[in-house]
Design a protein around this nucleic acid. Structure first.
Lengths: 232, 232
DNA sequence: ACCGGGCATTAAAATGTTGTTAAGAAGGTG
DNA sequence: CACCTTCTTAACAACATTTTAATGCCCGGT
């Protein structure tokens, strides 16, 4: 299985810092996406939704705070601001705009890495409060933290998108998610109307998870609305 | 959204800083719990679970990291460390032990408040899916947010229009809604006169919800006027 | 008791949504 | 570069919901 490494999007115009981040984060097993302008960063985030965003406030083409706001219109991905501006009011503005953390340059690698780990914890902490993070219903068992899925005794292999889709359903188990909600979360906001993607992947998931894919027990259709993962 | 003020537990031995936090946080509408030792802090957290913990690492009776670990054994409450130790390895250790943020003394009030707000955002997000309002009357249970409906133990599946219609009735439970009101809300303003639509769907709803559809208990007809969802 | 107007019931046609399949493109890996 | 997996795309089949229409029922007024 191509071990799905967490994806970090770096939006930063200074090549030196990008190189530095590429080296340190890359060596820790993260996959890096890079953008050198705000525009590029926003569209990159939309087309390849990352697990974490590292954002430099001092971009040439747009105010960093606006970038935060634009991201927050559709995603709750952790945003860590990296900025040369260390004034308190800058930090407050950044955090209140929706960022999750704020690091002032120059910063230490170790601290950055630790704060990235905190962000990963938050991202992975699904909506179940403190309880064990394995979801069970019937024969189906989904361990979000360890990224594995079982039906009965059998381990199920899922592709990245399949897992993301199932993960989303698990996080909102019992609740109906609309096609648009799912598409925006899994594929990114540009795909909100591409509901045929969803059909294909729901089909594949059922094929892997359901005893009788034609009569799904877990991943049920709410016709005209969306899909739902049934709880017992 | 609880109507009660968020509770912040401050574990800090220096009276000055406690006083300072009491003043600033208190004036922002937070309720403060205070503990001056690690022991006290741990038992306070256990007996009155707070929404956020502010933890000083330099406590007299126990290492701050151990406090974090002990808390993390049972709670995911946001922990913000406040410490005089500003060395990078201290921060890394604190964050990796399970803290969510790390502020070095001396810190600005505004930044602390902003980071508390970030923590509150995180804490609230986990609750969002849980307890929305579910409407109940007799055996009927309607959860608008999750979009599901039950009668007794049995899950009822509704089509989009059926659900919209029932949802409207739930939102105005107990009140009579005229045919025109319902038609305008559910089908749109151009359908205000098409009352036969309504009859068909009321019939279908009753068929799915009522024990005896001919003698409706929940969805009752107000002859000459409209329909009403009966409350108990 | 009869009539009429609103209401309930039913079912088939029309419309819209979802499921299925397969082939080709893209991406990653050795 | 050649392999493999995964993703995208498209076309068609299967299904569910909504609309439409026709019929029968109940109740109050005369």
């Amino acid at each position: 299985m191509s071990d799905t490494a967490p994806v970090i999007l770096v939006i930063e115009d200074e090549p030196q810092i990008r190189r530095f981040l590429r080296a340190t984060l890359g060596s820790q097993g993260y996959t890096l996406l890079e953008a050198t302008t705000a525009q590029e960063g926003l569209s990159e985030a939309a087309s390849h939704p990352p697990d974490i965003v590292l954002l430099d406030l001092g971009l040439p083409d747009m105010d960093g705070l606006e970038v935060v706001q634009r991201l927050r219109e559709w995603t709750t991905v952790p945003i860590i601001i990296i900025s040369a501006r260390g004034q308190e009011h800058d930090k407050v503005a950044g955090l209140d705009a929706g960022a999750d953390d704020y690091l002032t340059k120059p910063f230490g690698v170790a601290e950055l890495m630790a704060r990235v780990r905190v962000a990963m914890r938050h991202a992975n902490r699904t909506l179940n409060d403190g309880a064990d993070s394995v979801f069970k219903t019937g024969d189906l068992e989904v361990d979000l933290a360890h990224r594995n899925v079982r039906v009965g005794e059998k381990e199920i292999r899922l592709t990245p998108i399949e897992f993301k889709l199932l993960g989303l359903l698990v996080k909102h188990a019992g609740k109906v998610l609309t096609h648009r909600q799912i598409l925006k979360e899994v594929w990114g906001p540009n795909y909100a109307e591409e509901s045929h993607y969803l059909r294909v992947f729901v089909h594949q998931l059922r094929h892997k998870l359901e005893a009788d894919p034609a009569k799904p027990k877990y991943l049920v259709t709410e016709a005209g609305v969306g899909y739902r993962l049934r709880t017992e």
